[in-house]
């Protein structure tokens, strides 16, 4: 076999290998990018992440429209899918413009045009770390409460006795039904690492079981005229004894 053919075959093999490796690396990169989407704090009105990924054409109009330079378009290496808009509240929070220029500028509806009230946006959920929050240690801070634009609803203050001294504590609480995730709290928080930060609600929120209500939250008077469900048609005589019944197999296993 002459060397040129051998070289060709060798180079072809190397090239395929390189491409395969590159492909693996790129696939890994894309996967980690996509996984990181859950960390992204999106502009107000952003659709759920799957829809957003489909609709966002990465045009950058939202970032241009933002008067505060809040929004960044993600570059390779950012922990966010490339080219999509996001913001880092600790650096520049969303200032909650009432005319929502970013949403207005979006050409594809990746930022939902139906959002008409900035207070109803849900960009993320603020979460307090009670160990590093100064107010939770008893100090007088509550900066987050004072800078919150949804004053008195997204963050409230609860007074409680300190007990170790004759001072009251003023502890902040976040309420998910009002918090927009704008991050003004995180930006303003005076601790070295922000003790309150905005995260994708999926990462932090639980859910009380659908089968349970907190008894005191809503009135549920006793039904005065109960309507039972119509009884199922009775089994046709005694002839319909099933061959198997729930629990039977386990019972027949014995001890």
């Amino acid at each position: 076999m002459d060397t040129s053919r051998r070289d060709f075959l060798l180079k072809a093999a190397q090239g395929t290998a390189a491409a395969a490796c590159g492909g693996l690396l790129w696939a890994a990169f894309l996967r980690s990018n996509a996984a990181a989407a859950v960390l992204a704090i999106r502009p107000p009105g952003a659709r759920p992440e799957a829809d957003f990924a489909a609709l966002c054409i990465k045009c950058g109009q939202c970032a241009r429209a933002c008067p505060y330079d809040t929004l960044k378009m993600a570059t390779a290496g950012d922990k966010v899918p490339i080219g999509t808009p996001y913001f880092v509240p600790r650096k520049i929070p969303c200032y909650m413009c009432t005319d929502i220029p970013c949403k207005v500028a979006c050409p594809t509806g990746a930022l939902d045009p139906a959002l008409d009230d900035i207070a109803r946006s849900r960009m993320g959920l603020a979460v307090i770390d009670e160990e590093s929050c100064l107010s939770w240690q008893g100090l007088r801070c509550e900066v987050c409460y004072r800078v919150c634009p949804v004053k008195g609803r997204a963050i409230t203050i609860e007074m409680r006795p300190r007990e170790t001294s004759k001072h009251a504590m003023f502890v902040p609480w976040v309420h998910s039904d009002a918090c927009t995730g704008c991050g003004l709290c995180e930006a303003a928080c005076p601790t070295q690492e922000a003790a309150i930060r905005v995260l994708n609600p999926k990462l932090v929120q639980g859910k009380i079981g659908a089968h349970y209500r907190l008894g005191w939250r809503s009135e549920t008077p006793i039904t005065q005229e109960f309507h039972p469900a119509p009884a199922p048609a009775p089994a046709a005589g005694e002839a319909t004894v099933p061959k198997k019944a729930p629990g039977m197999d386990y019972l027949n296993q014995g001890l």
């Binding site: 349970y212 005191w216 549920t220 039904t223």
Partner: peptide, 30 residues
């Protein structure tokens, strides 16, 4: 449809309310 009842478990005897719909219990609350 709601009605009052008691918890199935211990001797403390907590009062609960039970919500039913279409022949099934859909929720309870203290």
């Amino acid at each position: 449809q709601w009605d009052k009842a008691v918890c199935r478990f211990c001797g403390v005897g907590c009062g609960i309310m039970v919500a039913t719909k279409e022949g099934r219990i859909v929720a309870t609350k203290g």
